[in-house]
Design a protein around this nucleic acid. Structure first.
Ligand code: SF4
Ligand code: SF4
Lengths: 162, 162
DNA sequence: CCTTTATGGATGTATAATGTCCATAATAAA
DNA sequence: TTTATTATGGACATTATACATCCATAAAGG
């Protein structure tokens, strides 16, 4: 289980965009050469980011990409979910639903009896999903802007001084 | 990015083992039929768990598997790391190391100058690894025994009453 | 000795990740 | 309007993992 390389590239591309963010459009070639990947590959990633409203794209001469909203409202979680998808990290197959009786929580059959007990009370799921939520809350709290804010001042070349 | 099914099966198998844990050995056939998977498949998983010291195995008649240590000292994290491996969730390729200058932390070149700045100060890594640590600390805090403790009492059939 | 049981190598299949190519459409600039 | 520029999305090829099975072997108990 690992994050895909595409996720890393998406993050790096967005940091680059946020960097030169004064309403300017950045072309795919500048982005891809900056990241050291091919433009055909990166364009797929950018296209996904556009479909999910993270960036805007414009065609034609002097076109390119820009952030669709301020960098402090683009969290790492947003980006990761676009690339990795939104399924849960842990999903049990129904084929697996020969589950241990032990896996059901203590308070049971008193409150609900119409649904699958699996989906709400399973303790295995509770732990695995709880772990995922921990990670997500951390990722939600860190934005693209956070990276810019904590970066070495010497590295910030553009600023706003033309 | 998802946990593999093998991870889920490993967890379920261990819960089953912990369930009938009075020093008895549980055969692969009982385990696999309980989980609804083939024995040849599950045996690979059990073998990994044995190599990492999570379970013990004994061959021969009336052989099988047992937990190698009490269930309260087998955390979800232990199990996951055996099956998924111990690499970090996020790793940047060196090919990618055309990294943004922005990605390096503010306090820099004052304390260290001998290593790759990437490996210690990169802010992208800091966020991604921080997120992983959040998840891991949660998984480390939840053990197989925790599941047994919080399960419905009615579901616990064996107990110790023969 | 013979049955039971786990082990690990070899192998095959399915699915997902990665990466490229090209035809097309949209747009700005000349 | 024409042309150069740029993103788009489908099709495709290529790995890399995950999933799954089979079989020969070894170890242990009866
Ligand atoms: S015990 Fe929980 S995780 Fe396992 S199959 Fe049942 S519902 Fe899914
Ligand atoms: S900026 Fe950080 S994550 Fe990106 S390539 Fe450099 S070290 Fe790796």
């Amino acid at each position: 289980m690992q994050f895909s390389k595409s996720t890393g590239n998406a993050l790096h591309a967005l940091i680059h965009l946020a960097h030169s963010d004064r309403g300017q459009h950045v072309g795919i070639k500048e982005l891809s050469s900056s990241l050291g990947v091919s433009d055909s590959y990166l364009s797929k990633i950018m296209s996904k980011l556009r479909q999910d409203g993270i960036v805007r794209a414009s065609t034609g001469a002097s076109g390119g990409y820009e952030l669709a909203r301020p960098a402090d409202r683009i969290s790492f979680l947003d980006v990761i979910q676009v690339i990795e998808g939104r399924q849960q990290l842990y999903e049990c197959l129904n084929a697996n639903a020969h589950h241990h009786p032990l896996a059901e929580a203590a308070e049971w059959s008193e409150e609900e009896e119409s649904g699958h007990p699996e989906s709400k009370d399973c303790l295995v799921k509770k732990v695995m999903n709880g772990a995922e939520l921990q990670m997500q809350s951390y990722l939600r709290a860190h934005t693209i802007q956070w990276v810019l804010d904590h970066a070495s001042p010497g590295s910030i070349r553009g600023g706003n001084g033309e």
